[in-house]
Simulated assay, not measured.
Amino acid sequence: MAHAVIAGGGIGGLATALSLARSGHRSTVLERSTSFAEIGAGIQLGPNAFHALDLLGAGADVREAAVFTDELRFMDGLTGEKVATMKLTGAYRERFGNPYAVVHRGDLYQALLAACQDRDDILLRAGTAVSGYSQDSSGVIAHTADGNDVRGSLLVGADGIRSAVREAMLGDGEPRVSGHTIYRSVIPIEKVPEELRWNTVTLWAGPRWHFVHYIIGGGEFLNLAVTLDDGASVPVAGRKAAGELVLSRFPGIGTTARRLLELGTGWREWVLCDRDPVRTWVDGRVGLIGDAAHPMLQYAAQGACQALEDAVVLGDLLKGAEDDALPQALEQFNALRHERAGNAQLVARRMGHELYHPEGERARVRNAMLGSLTQEAMYDKVAWLHGDRSFTDGGHGGHR
């Protein structure tokens, strides 16, 4: 049995601990915060996420808290006209083997946390920030800010977009600032007029901005997220923003979308960041997963999904692995995952530029293109992301 030290107790870190436990290994999860908790708002989960969650033993709990949406709806944010819809029931679920759902990020996290807490082979240690690592042929040491270093057979860096493990491994500095500012709010569903309580993920696309909303929390809340391509150059994470400021930044927004935007309270502001794809996520007995390996913009709704896939693949590759085989297994993990996750990173960027934020004639061309697609054509376009199950087959064929 290997002992994995996992830097980061977020979604990716907890999922990795569960996957390694499923493969017969024990883990110590080191979380820099003083408690294991998740902040944030809504998150979208494709069928690939549910395939992973089921294997990790958390699928049933996540389903209890999820809202299973009927369709993805793309709207013209200026005129209010419906451009296109992708139906998520019937043929979609039959083709991809699982539903598409939205959930509060905290509900997803709590399901993973509860599953970890139920296991004797997972130790959760809060208030411990990993600052770097050193290794030799027999193991790896996670260096911590408090000096209470932890030795293990391998180290998994699941410590996010500003990963200390990544910095020690790759030394590639700060993330790339996207130039996009996002404002988020979560409001009680009682505040939403009944005629606007759509069981959809709805996106209103405007010139250099877009607005997404959907119901979460088992139907109790509406998640609002509005993004502006404003050239922001300084990272911001969770700063309070006045409702008047948010409304003032989207003066041309259509009537229905503005009604929903005006409902928002307690707005928080982020400036979105990602990184360029890299080919190497491993160094001997050390590997990266999730946002530490492949942080991506939210536009493909695949950040958490790809982290869950990472966890399943890593656990499968380490099943029955002896101590001296761990570096080779990590190299195989890197080889299987880097291209697929890197493609997701780049697609997310392109979606922001080409799909969500065009203006003028480019927006009209976009609307015409989307409006011409059949349901089957839409499913074909997302199949490589939503429908991939190669990470669950034990052989991991078909990754791209």
Rank of each mutant, 00 (worst) to 15 (best):
G266E: 09
A325F: 00
T374W: 05
S23Q: 05
L314V: 11
L112R: 07
E195P: 00
I43G: 06
E190Q: 05
F96V: 13
D146I: 04
L56H: 11
L30D: 12
A304Q: 09
P277V: 08
P175G: 10
M296E: 02
R249I: 03
G303S: 12
N48D: 13
R389I: 12
I182A: 15
P99R: 06
F74T: 12
L222A: 08
E354A: 11
A142E: 09
L203M: 15
A15Y: 04
D107M: 03
I43L: 14
A325L: 08
A41D: 08
T255A: 15
G179M: 07
H338C: 12
A115G: 04
A58D: 08
P193G: 07
D118W: 00
M169V: 01
R176V: 04
T265S: 15
Y214H: 06
A232L: 09
G371H: 01
E262L: 10
W281I: 01
S33L: 12
H399Y: 09
G171V: 06
V382A: 13
S153K: 07
D229E: 07
L260H: 03
E309C: 09
L124F: 11
G290T: 08
R340S: 05
V29K: 12
S163E: 09
L370Y: 07
A257D: 04
D316S: 15
E220L: 01
D76A: 12
G147T: 03
D274M: 04
Q135H: 07
R32Y: 05
L30T: 11
R364I: 08
D380Q: 13
R366W: 05
E167G: 01
L317H: 07
I216S: 04
L272S: 09
D107G: 02
R184N: 09
S178F: 04
S178T: 08
G97F: 08
T144G: 14
A344K: 00
L154Q: 02
L385K: 10
E331F: 00
G80H: 11
H51V: 10
F36E: 07
S19W: 09
